[in-house]
């Protein structure tokens, strides 16, 4: 069967759990920015948890199904509609043959994950079907969906059950003011102590420049770096360093003005000091923050970050065990 894209939405792309282990070659992991919602959608349908789905940012697409197929939508709150009739989020429903699936305005969260029984059939590139648009790699021709695209769907496996839904305890919680836990470093010593303290004391708001590559923040006080002679190979700006590897989640502050949190389509390295790294357990949350919503950074220790990672993994395990 196949699905025709009538309207693509704002930035809809095919994503799975991503291509790990290629970042040292400059290829970022890509994959769903909210992995938990992507996995939940696949598990609800009985798909392999890493099957390829459509990630829809801020505005849903309009899709026409040429055959009936069961689907589920998890993540951001955009009410699905089949030929205009509302369907629930986080619950398996069927789109009949020749029907149109569309979505309402986003009420909360930023990214919706539409899983289709069987999963989307695009070729694996470097071990993943995820789209990496900067590198024109994976997904459908290495780019976001466009009107007129036709998505081929793998055969239905028959395990999907109408009405199966996420238990209330596993539903996502959205906000307009988020806390993100951060481990300071690797270059936190380059910040003046008062700037280091201010960074964690002020609210930041997400700028319009927030996408799969990175989330730019504004609204906090400018940060000052310690005076120094630029070492050989570093740029002249106080926020510059000799080029280094960028972890996913790392926070750079070019010229001390607007922090950028790198996400799953980020470049792998460069010459800006990273003053901290958002912990892995909070990266799904970053992917659900809308532009202009507020963020407060909270400093945590490595031990706290590891404990948070364990509870994140336990939550994924509860998804895998759900009835």
């Amino acid at each position: 069967m196949s699905i025709e894209v009538i309207k693509p939405g704002l930035a809809s792309s095919i994503q799975d759990k991503g291509r790990e282990g290629k970042y040292h070659l400059g290829i970022p992991p890509s994959g769903g920015m909210d992995q938990r919602s992507l996995i939940a959608a696949n598990l609800l349908l009985g798909n392999p948890e890493g099957a390829a789905v459509i990630e829809c940012a801020l505005m849903g697409p309009e899709l026409r199904f040429n055959e009936a197929r069961k689907v589920v939508a998890c993540g951001a709150e955009m009410t699905p509609r089949v030929n205009g009739e509302a369907r629930p989020l986080n619950e398996v429903f069927e789109v009949p043959a020749d029907a149109t699936l569309s979505f309402d305005f986003v009420k909360a969260g930023a990214r919706l994950y539409l899983a289709i029984e069987g999963g989307i059939d695009v070729p694996e590139r470097l071990g993943s079907r995820s789209t990496y648009t900067l590198g024109s790699l994976g997904g459908l021709n290495g780019r976001n969906l466009q009107a007129g695209d036709v998505l081929h769907i793998l055969p239905a496996h028959g395990y999907a059950t109408l009405g199966r839904c996420l238990p209330g305890t596993l539903l996502p919680e959205f906000s307009k003011h988020y806390q993100l836990r951060v481990i300071p470093g690797l270059y936190a010593h380059r910040l003046m102590p008062e700037s280091h303290a201010l960074f964690y004391e002020e609210d930041w708001s997400v700028a319009s420049e927030a996408d799969r590559i990175g989330y730019r923040m504004k609204g906090g006080s400018p940060l000052n770096f310690v005076e120094r002679e630029p070492p050989f190979g570093a740029g002249d700006d106080p926020s510059n360093i000799v080029d280094a590897c960028y972890p996913i989640g790392s926070i750079q502050v070019p010229s001390g003005s607007e922090p950028i949190i790198l996400h799953r389509d980020a470049v792998s390295g460069g010459g800006y000091a990273m003053i901290g790294t958002v912990i892995s357990a909070d990266m799904d949350t970053v992917g659900q923050i809308q532009p202009h919503q507020k963020v407060r950074f909270v400093e945590v220790s490595l031990e706290e970050a590891l404990a948070a990672r364990v509870s994140y993994q336990q939550e994924l395990e509860r998804l895998r065990q759900m009835p």
């Binding site: 704002l10 801020l58 505005m59 305005f105 986003v106 319009s208 809308q290 532009p291 202009h292």
Partner: peptide, 8 residues
């Protein structure tokens, strides 16, 4: 006329 998505 409503905003179809958040933005400036």
């Amino acid at each position: 006329i409503q905003a179809p998505f958040p933005g400036v």
